[in-house]
Design a protein around this nucleic acid. Structure first.
Length: 422
RNA sequence: GGAGGGGUGGCCGAGUGGUUGAAGGCGACGGUCUUGAAAAUCGUUGUAGGGAAACCUACCGUGAGUUCGAAUCUCACCCCCUCCGCCA
């Protein structure tokens, strides 16, 4: 959420950034109108409340002296009724204003390339040699089926489309990747956490999934709960409504969790294979930092994610998302895209974002500077480190051999206990 | 699921319906003392909105109600703790 005052004082700038994102800027005009109305009514209500408080004090004094206060009491009663009336209108305006505010996206950082959609994302760098095969490389789902390590058919029986059963060395590879990544991330100073994967509404609002993106979430009714689409939700909300002290910062967390996504509106997209599942595993990196460091922290978080791919020997490229492709809550995002030989293209495997104070303002995550009065919002960041399923795909496809077996990357051998999956 | 207890400032903890935004303590910050530190002592110290400022307003788990006036009374809900039941 943006600061209401910032929008009022910089409405042109905010409208510009909405246009760059491809959003309808009408919401800003609407917000300014409501906010204007709300503020003048608030002043009116506060004046009335002051009047009421003063009368109450007078009544109290009169009563202490044992005199009759019925004139004043009647007067106060009238004021109170008027307050009640105006407060109702005020509450209505406050709700409208808040709803609009929750639906305005973050402002892109100046370094973010301007563009309309993913075709205008800018490649920053590439790493790794693309594998050369003297045979036609197979899809990961064919490899998985042949090695009997992935079972899509039976998964659809027990749950439906977009689910998979990992079996044997496939299940072990999934687990090995989780452990490898957590071990690597914790060695870099990220604290491992294992949070709830079901969260309440306030948490979803805190990180920005709600109210705008309800159709992307799996819900549990009675009581109202949501399945997390990413560990970002649980982990960022760890510090919701807290005032941290400066010396606590920065805070780095890493978490493995399953993630759940409806994938509504993605019919026909990646229908085969593990690329787009309703349930998938992911290891996440989350940072809480001081505002002045957040863009440096984004660079180092991205490098930490890149390092995982490098250690696994998977070729990838890094792109900077353009304004039109940038997520709702992010001010800047780097996507890591891993090379998939069967598709002959790079596919997203990690998304690293700086949310600046957008999430922390929603979630009330603040800090106090040493020796300074008042509080400031922290900046939050997160990135996949990495998406497990897609990493597994990349390993199967990049490390496949002519006979259908798959070589285990060196760093995973201690976790897997074998050199080759066959 | 049943029975009971409790949610107050950064933390602990008091609070009779009327200068209680809230005693007291801890912590933090500043001063005095000291060569320096500790101890002692004095002072300052919640968050947010509005205002150029004086200052005003709101906030004692959340929401509604009673009242001229609610941390304090009523109701509903949420959360935490203890015991019993059930359960991986």
């Amino acid at each position: 959420m943006l600061d209401a005052r910032f929008i009022i004082e910089n409405s042109e700038k905010v409208i510009q950034s909405l246009l760059q994102r491809g959003y309808d800027p009408g919401i800003i005009k609407e917000f300014l109108g409501i906010e204007d109305e709300r503020r003048s009514l608030l002043i009116e209500v506060e004046r009335l409340r002051q009047q009421r408080n003063e009368l109450s004090e007078i009544i109290s004094k009169i009563k202490k002296e044992g005199r009759d206060a019925s004139t004043e009491t009647q007067k106060a009663k009238n004021v109170s009724e008027l307050i009640k009336e105006k407060e109702e209108k005020l509450k209505d305006l406050e709700e409208k204003s808040k709803t609009l505010l929750l639906n305005i996206p973050n402002t892109p950082h100046e370094s973010v390339p301007v563009g309309k959609d993913e075709t205008e994302n800018v490649e920053i760098r590439r790493w790794g040699e693309l594998p050369v095969f003297d045979f036609e490389p197979m899809n990961h789902w064919d490899i998985g089926e042949m090695l009997e390590i992935i079972d899509f058919e039976r998964a659809s029986k027990i749950a439906g489309a977009r689910f998979a059963i990992m079996k044997g060395m496939g299940a072990k590879l999934e687990r090995s990747l989780i452990n490898f990544m957590l071990d690597l991330n914790t060695s870099r100073g990220y604290k491992e956490v294992f949070p709830p994967i079901i969260v309440n509404r306030d948490s979803m609002i805190g990180t920005g999934q709600l109210p705008k993106f309800a159709n992307e979430l799996f819900t549990i009714l009675d009581p109202e709960f949501y399945l997390i689409p990413t560990a970002e939700v649980s982990v960022t909300n760890i510090h919701r409504n807290e005032i941290l002290s400066e010396k606590d910062l920065p805070i780095y967390y890493t978490a493995y969790t399953p993630c759940f996504r409806r994938e509504a509106g993605s019919y026909g997209k990646d229908v085969r294979g593990l690329i787009r599942q309703h349930q998938f595993n992911k290891v996440e990196l989350v940072k809480f930092v001081k505002p002045e460091n957040s863009y440096d922290e984004l660079e180092s978080l991205t490098r930490d994610a890149e390092d995982i791919l490098q250690k696994l020997g998977l070729p990838y490229r890094l792109v900077s998302l353009c304004t039109g492709d940038l997520g709702f809550a992010a001010s800047k995002t780097y996507d890591l895209e891993v090379w998939l030989p069967a598709q002959q293209r790079y596919r997203e495997i990690s998304s690293c974002s700086n949310f600046t104070d957008f999430q922390s303002r929603r979630a009330g995550i603040r800090f106090r500077r040493e020796g300074k009065k008042g509080t400031e919002f922290v900046h939050t960041l997160n990135g996949s480190g990495l998406a497990i399923g897609r990493t597994l795909i990349a390993i199967l496809e990049n490390y496949q051999q002519k006979d259908g077996s798959v070589i285990v990357p060196d760093v995973l051998k201690p976790y897997m206990g074998v050199n080759v999956i066959r």
